[in-house]
Write a protein that binds this DNA or RNA. Sequence first.
DNA 1: ATTGTTAAGTAAAACGTTTTATCTATTTTG
DNA 2: CAAAATAGATAAAACGTTTTACTTAACAAT
Lengths: 347, 347
Amino acid sequence: MKNKRTSIKDIAKALDVSITTISFVLNGKGEERKISKEVIKKIEDYVEEVNYRPNQVAQSLRTGKSKILVFMVEDIGNIFFAKIGRIIEDIAYKKGYKVLFASTDNDDIRSRELINVFHERQVDGFIIVPSPGIKKDIAQLMASDIPVVLCDRYFEDLDTNYVMLDNYGAAKEGTQHLIDNGYQNIAFINIETEQNQMVERAEGYKDTVEAAGLPVNIVAIPFSETHSEKGKNILRKVLAGTDSKIDSVLFSTNYLTQNCLELINEISPSLKHELGIITFDDDPFFKINSPSISSIAQPLQAIGEECMNIMFKLLKDKDRKNSETTKITLDAHLIERDSTQKKKHSF
Amino acid sequence: MKNKRTSIKDIAKALDVSITTISFVLNGKGEERKISKEVIKKIEDYVEEVNYRPNQVAQSLRTGKSKILVFMVEDIGNIFFAKIGRIIEDIAYKKGYKVLFASTDNDDIRSRELINVFHERQVDGFIIVPSPGIKKDIAQLMASDIPVVLCDRYFEDLDTNYVMLDNYGAAKEGTQHLIDNGYQNIAFINIETEQNQMVERAEGYKDTVEAAGLPVNIVAIPFSETHSEKGKNILRKVLAGTDSKIDSVLFSTNYLTQNCLELINEISPSLKHELGIITFDDDPFFKINSPSISSIAQPLQAIGEECMNIMFKLLKDKDRKNSETTKITLDAHLIERDSTQKKKHSF
DNA sequence: ATTGTTAAGTAAAACGTTTTATCTATTTTG
DNA sequence: CAAAATAGATAAAACGTTTTACTTAACAAT
């Protein structure tokens, strides 16, 4: 009943030709291996006729190549990663690669386990948004001569291929935009982390306000508290402004924006019209919100494309171990909307 | 240099034990096959020591099982699918399965190609959000005795496992909510499609307004025009209300909501405060928007869980061909917000 | 003393490919 | 005309497992 798929052996039997010959023909080595035109034709026709497709698992076992790439992110349910994932997927498919997605939750243990699992599965390459503590594992992975591209983050003292946003520059630009529009007391709302992309955003902010002679006000919310009452209280205090009254905020990531906006709404509906607001990561609804919300948009398409450019380069390169790593830094795109147009007086 | 991974053969050599014995021990068949305690211990210790991990590709080839599931959706960059994907991924990993994601763009050709590709790769099961015209391919896939669960949509006349929203009921509930709040002229904004989930939503809407003696007004925007000027014009006309003035809208899916809200904003900023608005698929920003937007939220967690319940049942079931299909219909969750609180007069 | 049983283990086939080495005719070359 | 080269193909090993069928030794039963 369970009709087994046709294998190369079945074809060999049917055409009275050796397995080897068929394999050569299928892999386009017919000419090279001096297989006669007639035999080539015969095989190709038959393959077409029975719609034979080689068993990829067997191919993988033999060649050690799987034609599978893996995209390891913090959370594939986060729209930022999901969008990049889609872009990567599309590019990969065009070249015959499939993409496994995996969410690490930014957890080192989970990341490590995933790397091992995929390594066992003989995936051909890794695109990784690394969790903070897996530098060693990344190094090991690279040492085992498998293509690795880091995305969104990197490690200062590890020579890897990566594709990053110019986080420092982007934060600078966003902050300067607030300053240019007359804001004088800007808070930078961040999550508590040592991930370099966040650190750089904080630096960009800090250097810019300092250069303008304005006060530095960095608020770090623990990752675990972004949805909790405790986190809300931290924000409440900032907005209440014990020392000096804040007139604007820069959110460092889309985790925070949503929750903080919600909170701002909760504290005082008029506040969101008075406060200058700009955030990293754009969202379609920012345009619709009132006020529409300014953002520092990441070039998702470019991020995905660059990751795949590097990946394909690595996949082709026979001795990639000896070739230089590629490091790409991309510019963000500042989207100016109503939330950063300083109003002379609140209403 | 390129230190090959240790294989079962290496262990055999190192311990002077046969390959077979090791395989039995590794697969927990040591007792059953009467391997002595000492040998079992010796093998287990060594395996631990050298951190041996079996080559999964070889396992797959031999057993025909890959421990990979595939989740085929319309677009993994769409937050609705991305969220479900994340839930499925988490459940899968707990049982040692990995998940391949694939976006079909709702295109039949692409869907068909993907199904074939994954079939070749010997994935163990499919969770599919089917494009409109691949009923036959789904049937074929099921005939080849591989677990298939449809998600979000199904085919009327094909006996499959599926997990669906009660689209009819959900649309009914949403529509009734508008009626209860005093709206009298409700438009249903849909994409032009024959996908059953959309048809059912339209029916739910239609039956409800008709039962209340209110006019039926179904607007179908071609899929390709959701972002175009042409699509906008269709909407403009509806909102202008040539025949009768519309006082509220029900959006059938999250593709539309964003664009239409944008357009409503564009046409007249005050309109969004006057119009009753409710939409399928919740979004975090609906809560923050002013007015906050009512929605018919899908139970993402439950959808993911039910898909996986069925999948695991199928994976276990030896003769699933003869067992009954499982059909699950889930209820939506109506979230009432400001956008459906009828205002006595516009402002 | 033969037969049967069990304990403890192994050899070898199989999964479906790719690839290396080899083979036989035929043709070319010196 | 013998040696060398080439055309056209194939056998068999290899990838790393799982699994079937077998072996051997020890012991028990008749």
